[in-house]
Simulated assay, not measured.
Amino acid sequence: MAVKSSADADLAASVEAITGLAFTDAALLRRALTHASAGEGKDYQRLEFLGDRVLGLVVAQMVFEANPGAPEGELSLRLNALVNAETLAEIADEIGLSRLIVAGSELRTLTGRKRVNLRADVMEALIAAVYLEGGLEAARRFIGRYWEGRSKAPTAARRDAKTELQEWAHQVAKASPLYVVESREGPDHDPVFEVSVRIAGVRPASARGRSKREAEQAAATAILLREGVWAGEVEG
């Protein structure tokens, strides 16, 4: 269905600013941004499936070409860090995609991991829509705009911080890290958590995030940086 109404035109203009692609298929665009809870009859789930594969292909090639001497294991770490839900949700917020999502009222107050997954899923659906509307090169340009810089970051080859800290803690303390929620602030739809992580014989660290998982990852990262497990600057 071609863009006809003013609402469709406004949506197409908003998405063009994000993707660099002028959409003509309004129905495809609306579907990519609609969750099943909205009761519209069509939602983004099938597009999410396709977008996941398009993103994986483009980012895999990006990582492969940018790191000619890297072994398969490092390439896998870089790929996983760039296509995980946290990265997709972060980019969705960065480009203003989250405000365009159409969902039922019960989903508008999602918090924590479910909120991350919702934004990540819509990000994948939008990638699929770009691919279907403009082809692989259009999808490649869109993905390159927001993923290429991240792919070159020194942290791109790092493993998940909690996984890394778990292994390090077992080596130095023969125990698992303990994560404790110290506080929760803000409204239900936009909370901020402060989480501390404690390991026997190691000075604890704390961090804040918009979900418990985000705060836990940040706290784990703080210890890994402070203790020299990971190279980089320690904040604070």
Results as ranks from 00 to 15, higher is better:
Asp8His: 13
Asp10Phe: 00
Val15Asn: 14
Ile18Asn: 05
Gly20Tyr: 13
Thr24Phe: 10
Leu28Gln: 12
Ala38Leu: 04
Gly41Arg: 13
Gln45Val: 11
Leu47Val: 14
Glu48Phe: 10
Gly51Met: 02
Gly51Ser: 11
Gly51Asn: 03
Ala66His: 08
Ala66Lys: 00
Gly69Cys: 00
Pro71Val: 11
Glu72Ala: 11
Gly73Leu: 15
Glu74Phe: 12
Glu74Gln: 12
Leu75Asn: 12
Leu75Tyr: 15
Leu79Cys: 11
Asn80Ile: 02
Asn84Val: 01
Thr87Leu: 04
Thr87Asp: 03
Thr87Gly: 01
Leu88Met: 09
Glu94Arg: 15
Ile95Val: 14
Gly96Glu: 15
Leu97His: 03
Leu97Cys: 05
Leu100Cys: 12
Ile101Asn: 13
Leu107Thr: 02
Leu110Asn: 12
Arg113Gly: 04
Arg113Ala: 11
Lys114Phe: 15
Arg115Ser: 07
Val116Ala: 00
Val116Thr: 10
Ala120Ser: 14
Glu124Met: 15
Ile127Phe: 01
Ala128Cys: 05
Ala129Phe: 08
Ala129Gln: 03
Tyr131Gly: 07
Tyr131Trp: 15
Leu132Gly: 09
Glu133Phe: 03
Leu136Met: 01
Ala138Gln: 09
Ala139Asn: 00
Ala139Thr: 10
Arg140His: 12
Arg141Ala: 09
Phe142Pro: 06
Ile143Leu: 10
Gly144Val: 08
Ser151Tyr: 05
Pro154Ala: 00
Thr155Leu: 02
Ala156Asp: 02
Arg159Trp: 04
Thr163Arg: 12
Thr163Leu: 07
Leu165Tyr: 03
Ala169Val: 05
His170Ala: 13
His170Lys: 13
His170Leu: 13
Val180Leu: 07
Val181Cys: 04
Gly186Thr: 13
Pro191Cys: 11
Val192Pro: 02
Val192Arg: 01
Phe193Arg: 00
Val195Ile: 04
Ser196Met: 02
Arg203Lys: 06
Pro204Leu: 04
Ala205Trp: 05
Ala207Val: 06
Ala207Gly: 08
Ala207His: 12
Gly209Ala: 06
Gly209Asp: 09
Lys212Val: 05
Glu216Pro: 07
Thr221Trp: 00
Ile223Pro: 02
Leu225Ile: 07
Arg226Glu: 07
Gly228Ile: 07
Ala231Ser: 01
